[in-house]
């Protein structure tokens, strides 16, 4: 089984978000800032590694991003993904249609082991939350797509997908080739082992020059959410063990109407 995993480098904040002076980007220069992959995508990569362990074949991670995305790509190679492809951007943001087009082109090109049978990705990106890239890929390829998947089992070329809805799960089945967009909780992604990290250094990462299409969902500016400035009213004296706040809490329950 040949699997493509689509993933994206996103900023990681150890504290509060800060924006650049012109308000168009997250300020990633601070000491508490780093970069990561979204949990959804880490689960997609883990699922790909498990499926290749079960069925053979290979897995490829594809990203649209800056050259430094190699760090995040190698982190997936260290947990067992076989190779990486970076459609390299100059750092400017690509809109969902542009991102989808670049990913579609790479999926169509296939891997050195042949055509892909399965594309796995997050239901939405951690940063932009567009909820559409997987579905656009599926339509371009003429493949079925199941979204929001939190349970996945493949038998005889048919993927049984579970989707969590409130307290129960909906069941879908699709024949491969297919696109499946997953959610955090699908599995528990493994940590990279030391041999895994060493192997990852030798795995191939191809760079392909990307050209950003004109955005049709065009970012104008960013702002921090207003709630960021709220400051909680302290109940009780705020000193001691906090038990003196209990009468105020019960009163609050009454006011809100929950008792």
């Amino acid at each position: 089984m040949n699997i493509a995993v689509c993933a994206k480098r996103v900023p990681l904040s150890g504290g509060r978000w800060e924006l650049t002076a012109d308000g168009t980007e997250i300020d990633t220069s601070g000491a508490s800032m780093g970069f990561t992959l979204s949990p959804h995508e880490e689960c997609a990569a883990e699922a790909a590694v498990q499926l290749v362990e079960e069925f053979g074949g290979s897995s490829t991670v594809i990203t649209v991003g800056v050259a430094d995305s190699e760090e995040q790509i190698r982190s997936l190679l260290a947990v067992g993904i076989d190779r990486g492809v970076i459609v390299e951007t100059d750092g400017g943001e690509w809109d969902p249609q542009g991102t989808s087009s670049a990913l579609i082109e790479q999926v169509r090109a296939g891997s050195p082991d042949g055509a892909y049978d399965l594309v796995l990705l997050g239901t939405e990106a951690a940063d932009t939350a567009d909820f559409q890239v997987g579905i656009r890929i599926a339509h371009a390829l003429g493949w079925p797509v199941v979204t929001n998947v939190k349970g996945l089992k493949i038998t005889d070329g048919v993927a049984r997908c579970e989707r969590a809805v409130g307290s129960y799960r909906e069941i879908y089945e699709v024949s491969l080739p297919a696109v499946i967009t997953v959610k955090d909780g699908l599995n528990i992604p493994r940590y990279p082992s030391v041999p895994g990290r060493i192997k990852a250094r030798k795995k191939s990462v191809d760079f392909i020059a990307g050209e950003r299409p004109a955005p049709r969902l065009e970012k104008v500016k960013l702002a921090l959410a207003v709630e960021e400035q709220r400051s909680a009213e302290i109940l009780g004296t705020g000193t001691g063990n906090g038990a003196d706040a209990v009468p105020a809490l019960v009163e609050l329950f009454r006011t809100i109407g929950v008792i």
């Binding site: 504290g15 509060r16 709630e227 960021e228 400035q229 709220r230 400051s231 909680a232 009213e233 302290i234 109940l235 009780g236 705020g238 000193t239 001691g240 063990n241 906090g242 038990a243 706040a245 209990v246 009468p247 809490l249 019960v250 609050l252 329950f253 009454r254 008792i259």
Partner: peptide
């Protein structure tokens, strides 16, 4: 950081506060 989002806060150990809160809520 939660204090920047919460409307109300109790500063203290939940292991001390919650048993008292449960008892007081039950009584109420």
């Amino acid at each position: 950081p939660i204090m920047g989002y919460a409307h109300y806060a109790v500063i203290g150990d939940l292991h001390t506060i919650l048993p008292e809160l449960v008892a007081a809520t039950r009584a109420a």
